[in-house]
Design a protein around this nucleic acid. Structure first.
Lengths: 249, 249
DNA sequence: TTATTTCCATGATCCACATCAATTATTTCA
DNA sequence: TGAAATAATTGATGTGGATCATGGAAATAA
């Protein structure tokens, strides 16, 4: 295995995207997926000045928890994150997984403290947008405001679909829907739609889909037996997209 | 029962709020709950010019369906609405109930067509905000933009809580949470937190909570036996708020 | 390297809630 | 006003996925 570093990796891995800590928005590979899309050059420069680019976080790094005061929005730059909310008795629900170019913290804008928790699933980095600064420059950049509304609206629509999934779908349908959602998002980011790494644990997936870990594990095994996927640890290959689509309901 | 019309009604009923079709925002009883909150007088007048106030719709009126092009946002003026999304196979999920002062259609902003369906649950009316107009005047009214972001963020946070409910809570906890959410929203609107009308059917409630109608029916019966509520048809009295709060988890 | 912990897979059992079925209210509308 | 349609309740039965239990595989630490 002496060539490991030189061969094309078999699986996409978002953590492997290397970002220069100081790369400006206009030079960022995520530009077309990210907030600045559609801003003119002047505005882009202005936006750049308020963005704080993080160092590389390790797996398990906490971006914020529900106790902390709301200060910033975050955009994933590399790696991936999960968000959770907690019930009073400690149970919690994984409310979302976030990939490069996606916003974290949008549900906090209307109040003092973050309502959820966010932590990295692998080696990751973010762009931090202090909200008060964003508000300020937004006043002179209607296009930015529209972008923000669009982002929020998109997440809202996604959450409504998750409600459909949680409320109405069977275990099979849930997993199929989840895998295709990941597939689509990898593809949007220029990666393979069929070969990728699952950065989240089985238990995160189970929790997110309203299932038990054991059920998710059995589903993976069965999907593989049926020849729809090949799963080995965190590496996933989708073999039969059409079948999964049909399963979504 | 000759006095029916003259006695104080036993239960709140949002459809009974009568609104003059032409009442401007600054004179509207919903002012403090609604979008215009925080706008200065100039801006308020400008906002007023783009609002189209609807006639009174009957129960079951369709505001929009998922096939229609996105044109407007709506704010409930009187009565109540439900929104649903449909899976490919026809199953659908009630994604929300909307009361006076609440926005409908926020999940549509990012795309061409509404992703959901909205229909009235009783005699209702709305304020219609054509989105392109809203965008235009928003450019000169940063405060309005902030309000919009706040609204979206609030709905987002609510939906995350619904995900927790759908994914993690038991049937008892689901119903308790739902009833308290209604209670709180009635109270915010100046009505009794303990006596109100359920404008939605048992089957809408069941669907929204990811339960079967029969389960909801049995839960209502049991909650009543336990002395926590009194339920008669659509009329609900909450007798033991503390117990319900404890049940939420 | 080994020890320790966490994660994952798979079988056996169980239960909360769905489904099916029948009856009674309530609403709708001719 | 009464007939038909629809919604709600209640009971009997069934089941999808949870829970419990165990052993093996990876990851992490020492």
């Amino acid at each position: 295995m002496a060539q490991t570093n030189t061969v094309t990796p078999l699986f996409n891995d978002l953590a492997k995207i290397e970002h220069d800590r100081n790369v400006a928005c206009h030079a960022c590979s995520l530009y077309s997926l990210c907030l600045p899309l559609g801003l003119d050059n002047n505005d882009l420069v202005k936006l750049d000045t308020i963005i704080e680019r993080s160092q590389n976080y390790k797996r398990g790094h906490t971006l914020f928890t529900s106790k902390q005061p709301f200060k910033s929005l975050f955009v994933v730059r590399s790696g991936s994150f999960k968000t959770t909310i907690s019930a009073a008795d400690g149970r919690d629900q994984v409310t979302g997984f976030y990939f490069p170019g996606e916003f974290i913290g949008l549900d906090a804008i209307h109040q003092q403290n973050y309502p959820s928790n966010a932590r990295s699933l692998e080696s990751s980095s973010v762009c931090e947008l202090p909200f008060s600064n964003l508000e300020d420059i937004g006043k002179e950049m209607p296009q930015l405001q529209i972008q923000m509304l669009t982002r929020l609206s998109k997440e809202l629509a996604g959450d409504k679909n998750l409600m459909l999934l949680l409320g109405k779908k069977t275990a099979d349908e849930k997993l199929a829907t989840f895998l295709l959602s990941l597939s689509k998002r990898f593809q949007e980011r220029g990666f393979s739609a069929t070969n990728f790494q699952l950065s989240m644990s089985r238990s995160d997936i189970a929790n997110h889909l309203g299932l038990a870990v054991e059920t998710v594990s059995r589903l993976f095994s069965r999907f593989q037996e049926e020849g729809w996927i090949v799963i080995a640890g965190k590496s996933l290959v989708i073999k039969n997209t059409a079948k999964l689509e049909q399963l979504c309901g």
